[in-house]
Design a protein around this nucleic acid. Sequence first.
DNA 1: TTGTTGAGAGGACAGGCCTT
DNA 2: AAGGCCTGTCCTCTCAACAA
Length: 311
Amino acid sequence: MRTVIITNCTNRKRLDGLPSVVLSDECFPSLAAMAQAWKERVDERPATQTASSLYLGRSVSDAKCVATRLGARLMFASTGLGLVESDHKCPPYDLTVSQDPNSIIPHLEKWGLRASDWWEAVNGTRERASALADLVSHPDIDLTLIALTSSYVQLIAADLEKIEDAHIDKVRIFTSRPGIEMLPRRLRSMAMPYDERLEGSTLPGTRNDFPQRAMRHFVEVLELSSAPAEVARKAVSEAMNDLSPAKMTVRRRASDSEIAYMLECVWSDYKGSSTRLLRYLRDVAQVSCEQSRFRKIWRDIKCQDSIESKA
DNA sequence: TTGTTGAGAGGACAGGCCTT
DNA sequence: AAGGCCTGTCCTCTCAACAA
């Protein structure tokens, strides 16, 4: 049984000391010209590491776990490189379909195009415009597990649409609820019905890595990788029914000055540790405080503290 | 005493969807 | 639109062990 795991690439990448590849800010006459210029930039930059080493984060490590478990090929759906094998050597680059200063979306909007047009163009520069559909229809491939965030579903949607009816049954898709909405209608039945109740399972986590955690649950906990699609869907639904939704903690809101005062009161108890003080705020004081906001407040107190200790 | 190395602890940050 | 959530990983710092 030949299985392929496809996961989205990540914005966070392991750097190699050289500058990352970025799209030049010149004005391109067409999508094809932009894709070609991008390919040339990528190709001229030395590639020092494989895709599986380049991309970082829990979504990647979960996808790797699944691939190891099944002895499967791991591939990445990448905005900058198209569909790439995990052992493909590639350079660090900054290009994404997510909301980011390096997003490809504003460029595409100029021509009234969508992310999926870029996917076709970037794969086209490597002579495989329908990379995903071709992969799925290959006779050697029995199963393709696709775990993607919604923005990456948008990216590959047109390629998915090209999968012939005869091969659709080989695909299992793991994505968020908005991601399922973005799938071609024909493929929605291949999306496994995971929802927020997954947070109550042995694989809780962040929304960012939900698709990969769902895939991991499917393979490791439910062991459904060789089950027919309809059986798998039913089993996932039943598994979700057996889980209770994770308790959402509702914390009190407080002003910066109130939080600063609270932190000062327990500062010495926690030896000024930012990690432990944030946990104190959330777990003990039950006060909500986003981490970057917390960091600013914490730094102000720390700065004040070191001035006083020097005096 | 000084320099080097490795282990461990903890700070900082990215990621993207949901809620306000 | 801004704020909030949480965890894996990288980076930096500290300290112990050891060698020169």
